[in-house]
Design a protein around this nucleic acid. Sequence first.
DNA 1: TTGAAAGCGATACCAT
DNA 2: ATGGTATCGCTTTCAA
Lengths: 326, 326
Amino acid sequence: MLPTIRDVAREAGVSIATVSRVMRDSDTVRPATRARVLLAAQELEYIPSQLGRQLAERRHAANGIVFPDLSGPYFAEVVLGYEAVAAELGRSVLILSTNGRADADVAVREMAGRCDGLVTLGRTVDDSVIEALAKRGARIVLIARPPIGSLDSVNAENHDSAVALTEHLIAEGARRLRFVGDPDLTADVAERWAGVQKAADDVELVAVTELGEDAGTRVADAALERGDLPDAFVCANDELALGVLGRLRAAGVEVPGQVKVTGWDDVMAARYAGLTTVRQPMRELGATAARMLDELIHDTRTEPRHELLHTELVIRRSTSRKKESS
Amino acid sequence: MLPTIRDVAREAGVSIATVSRVMRDSDTVRPATRARVLLAAQELEYIPSQLGRQLAERRHAANGIVFPDLSGPYFAEVVLGYEAVAAELGRSVLILSTNGRADADVAVREMAGRCDGLVTLGRTVDDSVIEALAKRGARIVLIARPPIGSLDSVNAENHDSAVALTEHLIAEGARRLRFVGDPDLTADVAERWAGVQKAADDVELVAVTELGEDAGTRVADAALERGDLPDAFVCANDELALGVLGRLRAAGVEVPGQVKVTGWDDVMAARYAGLTTVRQPMRELGATAARMLDELIHDTRTEPRHELLHTELVIRRSTSRKKESS
DNA sequence: TTGAAAGCGATACCAT
DNA sequence: ATGGTATCGCTTTCAA
């Protein structure tokens, strides 16, 4: 059995209250007493129980983060940014991946009971679940998700970047565009789709529900078979675009001459594939959310806060023969 | 204030013991009583406190995982595999990134106090810290790290794969090899270096301590400036290799004709860059560790266990003009 | 400066 | 089948 506060108290010949004071080097304890306690603690290799402390203080000193998946750099980077700031603020981090989990709702509620606040990424759980938790007093920050009630949120700019991306394509001579991705799936994609529609006259939608390379490959395949290639494939994310791009190049289609391809996120592979895309400040998304959550937990703020982070158009050879921007 | 077990007991006109029984749908409770309790719980929107429960049961139902960093797919995938299995086993997951953290030791100890067991990835913390925790009764599984004491471990095969990789290079005509990476940095790299040395007659070492693309770029730069190119750069990981490869190609060096390049890990970008590499079962590393940890936590096993997972040589156009293997 | 004792919110043993 | 109560390990008044 691990030593408890009582063992230390007995060993040092003081009360548990005094031990507690020393361990949190808080109050006023006479130096001599403090020394005795510390000695006893050291001898017994005593470390205060987090559970006991948490229960008494009624706080967890832990934050949660819910995401669909960690494959692909996007979510991983966000989580990393989150963890870094949370740690800085002295908080532990709990993670929960909802992907392929039937009982995601239950898992999120469970997580909520283990931390002082949490952030959710994308459309991981139903609004109703989030709302119920918020009503119970849970502190919540949303990332990449439209506002729910008066909850805080952090998002990367989508609409205007999509407009800029589309205008670039048009400037490069593309007329018939084809958007690949499902706007109903996430708000991010919906906003990108809206931006593309706004800037382009001739754009059609291929609503694929998956966002992996395979899905992109299939889209390109279908287009090749039908002999119906647009001037540009505007993909909802990089992985889709990489799939499309790979298939087109393999089929001998000239990119960007004949067909142009764009992605979104700027994952590492995008650079090697020469893929034009939009770079998101992934770590910053997580870091910002962590800071906002901390404000909520400490009741530093009453007004809801909504952050919109900037993105950056990255032009590469999948759309342009001119000098690449990076 | 959130309702407690006492509120529900009062509301339902029963004792807290009965409420507890109902909430864990354990023991024998008369259907009528159970219904009354459930109704009261529902009305009050009662959810048992994890803290109270954990303290009473003296278990956390949570696992930890310590890693250096989540950037790059390697660690992210391992964490994901770990989380998936842990969740399946009904356990929450705490994460801790030690990268750029001065007080990593403290953070790990703190984490140990918050979970029933943890796994550490690579050389995140000193052996001494791990040993101290183990002595205190912490359940620990090591990933990608040589055994400490009689602690469980999971590793990916390195030595033999390095031999195979080297033999492939030699078969392709490479004679003068140059290994890029620091064997002193991690056991993984040390084993790869040993394998390469065993299979090659002529191999020199460039000990770079960083493992990013930039470091690779610098290595290639230095070699180009000195006009001293080997037949092949054997890099400790893909990111280094991608840096080398990019720089060489930019300089007009013919790859694989003039110089060959290999990496390790098979990250997504490797495929697009046509990089020959060794694929590791990243998720499987995490998943296996999670299962082993669960055995430890449940005392299902007394003998230490050491798993060695298989890797796969992936040949691409950075070393060979023949048909690629994937 | 220190100690006694009342929580914190549950579980679980022992009666009834 | 239920209830009373000690217990888990700590924090935090309130007195002394």
